[in-house]
Design a protein around this nucleic acid. Structure first.
Length: 472
DNA sequence: ATGTGC
């Protein structure tokens, strides 16, 4: 327009390289800095040229900064042409989508082994019920969104007929001492977990600490539950040194609440930015354990796991106090986690279990059925083909959506009545009919675990609509 | 799974 108009040539003089940045800079000056002098414009532009990374987050300057910075590495790490071998337990009951996802996971360059449990179904990245061993890499989505999600069971010396003689009292205990959905305890019980260094040392965890404290001891939603039932101990050689017979039991299933979910979300994003994979594998992006991000995730994952465990301990402590008893025995296990373990050759591998129960030789775990079917205290057999794992439940036979569409409330209520189970909260999507037959699932994993005791649920609490419940 | 949403 006039002699004072900034030209591309002026930019080349101050060191701009011919290319996209020049055009971006000129357009920016034209739209946002029209009124200042050419000299002033050049001063601004040379500042951005000197340190573009400083302007990456700036709303106005970001496009220019991006154009000046070296192009992001978009190198895609290819998948192996064929999937490594893995054993599928209960293959006849596993949906195609889960198998397909497992096949993709078995083609990652970092994968050294895997197995699919009989309750497997499609998830994000690795299927639920998938076990994956990698070399020096951790995959946030192979751990799962609910990091450290776990089972915990307490056995009591109380005669289990209390379930039929005092159902109202037990129901009150559950309502008073557990919190579901968005409800939390008005005065959360403080715990040493909140003093962990990770909350101070890891930037992401720091921002999650306050909410984590508010949610301490709560159960969340989805398939999480706290329930009373009966355990029949079958094995006279049980690890609890208890006589065989029937015991009152409390069983809880929940995870790391918003803490783990946010950690999972954050590090998955970090992984997907640094580890580009073909479209069908993108959610399996990993973090190298030798990198800062990898080590940070490992620490954050362990924090979330310990937090999940603390929540269970508080749930069980509250109920124990309300019952006025101390438990005779406690069994507990994570099923969404990654561990450093040794493979058959003695090499250290990272074993991801996403909805799979650790089942090393002699390791105790809990595999529940559904709200109205039996669950099992199991002892691992240490089967190498399953990577020392077993299922974490019965697995769905119906998606949540399908369950809500096809099941009716009276139908589910009748089923529960017949089973002698009372349920507080929950929705049709958690109905027993939405789950596989747990007996069949247990049959498929006879090589993986042996049954120590059988749990029969009686009074179940799950997430309903208890936003109104805030009392302590 | 999730302050159930960029």
């Amino acid at each position: 327009m006039n002699a004072h108009q900034l030209k591309g040539k002026d930019l080349l003089k101050i060191g701009y390289a011919p290319g996209k940045a020049v055009g971006t800079a000129l357009a920016l000056m034209e739209t946002a800095f029209k009124e200042i002098s050419k000299e002033e414009q050049l001063i601004l532009l040379s500042k951005v040229l000197c340190s573009p990374s400083k302007y990456q987050e700036d709303e106005l300057w970001a496009p220019l900064a991006e154009a000046l910075l070296p192009p992001k590495q978009e190198v895609v790490t290819p998948l192996l042409p064929g999937a490594k071998d893995y054993v599928i337990y209960g293959a006849e009951g596993i949906e195609a989508g889960a198998l397909k996802q497992m096949d993709v996971a078995m083609r990652l360059s970092v994968t050294v082994g895997g197995a699919l449990m009989p309750d497997a179904h499609q998830g994000y990245g690795l299927p639920i019920g998938g076990v994956l061993a990698t070399q020096n890499a951790v995959i946030p989505y192979a751990v799962g969104v609910d990091i450290g999600c776990r089972m915990s069971m307490s056995l009591y010396a109380i005669p289990p007929d209390i379930l039929t003689t005092q159902p109202a009292q037990l129901k009150k205990l559950l309502l008073d001492n557990t919190r579901f959905g968005t409800a939390t305890f008005k005065n959360p019980q403080d715990h040493a977990i909140m003093e962990r260094n990770e909350f101070a040392d890891i930037a992401v965890a720091k921002g999650l600490k306050d909410r984590a404290f508010r949610q301490l001891g709560s159960s969340g939603g989805g398939n999480h539950f706290v329930e009373f039932g009966t355990v029949e101990l079958h094995d006279p050689e049980n690890e609890f040194s208890l006589p065989t017979g029937n015991y009152l039991a409390v069983l809880s299933h929940s995870g790391s609440r918003g803490l783990g979910a946010s950690i999972a979300g954050h590090y998955t994003k970090v992984a997907m930015e640094s580890c580009r994979l073909p479209q069908e594998a993108r959610h399996l992006a990993w973090l190298d354990l030798n990198t800062e991000a990898g080590q940070e995730y490992w620490l954050a994952m362990n924090l979330a796991g310990d937090y999940a465990s603390t929540c269970h301990h508080q749930i069980h402590q509250r109920l124990a106090a309300a019952l006025g008893e101390r438990p005779l025995a406690v069994v507990e296990n994570h099923h969404n986690f990654a561990w450093k373990e040794k493979d058959a050759a003695g090499n250290e591998v990272i074993v991801h279990r996403k909805g799979a129960t650790p089942a090393g030789q002699g390791v105790l775990g809990i595999i529940p059925g559904s709200m109205a079917t039996p669950g099992f205290i199991v002892r691992g057999k240490g089967e190498a083909n399953s990577l020392n794992s077993a299922s974490h439940g019965a697995g769905r036979v119906m998606s949540r959506t399908k369950a809500k569409q096809t099941l009716s409330l009276p139908q589910v209520q009748q089923y529960l009545l017949d089973a002698g189970v009372e349920v507080i909260g929950s929705g049709l999507d958690e109905a027993p009919m939405a789950y596989k037959d747990i007996r069949q699932v247990m049959q498929s994993q006879q090589d993986l675990v042996e049954v120590v005791g059988t749990f029969t649920p009686k009074l179940v609490r799950m997430c309903g609509d208890e936003k109104y419940m805030e009392k302590d």
